[in-house]
Computed example of a mutant assay.
Amino acid sequence: MTDMLAKRIQPMVFQARRLYVELMFQVMGRALQAVSEVDEKVQNEARALPDGFLFEMMVMPDGSKLIVEHTGQGRFRYHGDKAPRPIDLSIQFKHIAHAFLVLSFQEKTSVAFANDRMLVDGDISYAVRMTRVLNRLESFILPKMVAERAVKEYPADLHLPEKLISAARIYLKVATNFVETVRA
């Protein structure tokens, strides 16, 4: 009886994980755009990327994805899951379960790399830079206790007032972007 129940539940669990990862990629893409508009440290990291640089994070082989472009001056623009031209850097999860572990903050990105759950296609120095941007974003938008589990090192200089103000600005921009997308 339990084997039969497990066989019926397993596809639902897979579907729920897929939907969660898809939603998280949409939120993260919009949040990357937003954090690049409000945080000087993110802008400084992004300025080292070439203008027009396209970053993709995806689930292999052709699952959910997010695509952002460095438009210059440290700013990102979210493109959804459609790239206007070839991708410069792709970080790929080997399986939906691996993406779920990282995007549900059960496993740090660095641990996922170490456990061979992800691939990098592109310049490693750009991947390190984008990982720092993602870690900074997560430090702002996640509660400290969750962020400390999600990022390699929580910023020692990120204090509650700055965190709350920046998080509020990021979430407002993300919500505005979702509304604008729905209207379009």
Score class of each variant (00 low, 15 high):
R17W: 09
S110V: 07
K94R: 15
M4L: 14
A114E: 12
R8T: 10
A167W: 02
L49E: 05
A167M: 07
S104E: 10
S166L: 09
D157E: 11
A48M: 08
D121P: 02
V179W: 13
V174S: 01
L119V: 06
A112I: 11
L172C: 01
H98W: 03
H95F: 11
H159W: 06
Q10N: 11
V35N: 10
T176N: 14
R129L: 13
S139D: 08
K41W: 03
L19Q: 10
R8D: 09
D3F: 06
A97G: 08
T2Y: 12
M1A: 14
M57G: 02
S139Y: 07
F14M: 07
E180I: 01
G72Q: 02
M57Q: 13
I9V: 15
T181R: 02
M60S: 14
F55V: 07
R149T: 01
R149F: 00
N177M: 12
E45Q: 09
K108R: 14
G52M: 14
P155M: 11
E148R: 15
R30L: 10
A99Q: 11
S139M: 04
V128N: 06
I9D: 04
R47H: 02
D62E: 13
K41I: 00
G122A: 05
M4F: 12
M145P: 01
Y154T: 01
M4K: 15
L160D: 04
K41L: 01
Q26E: 06
S110G: 04
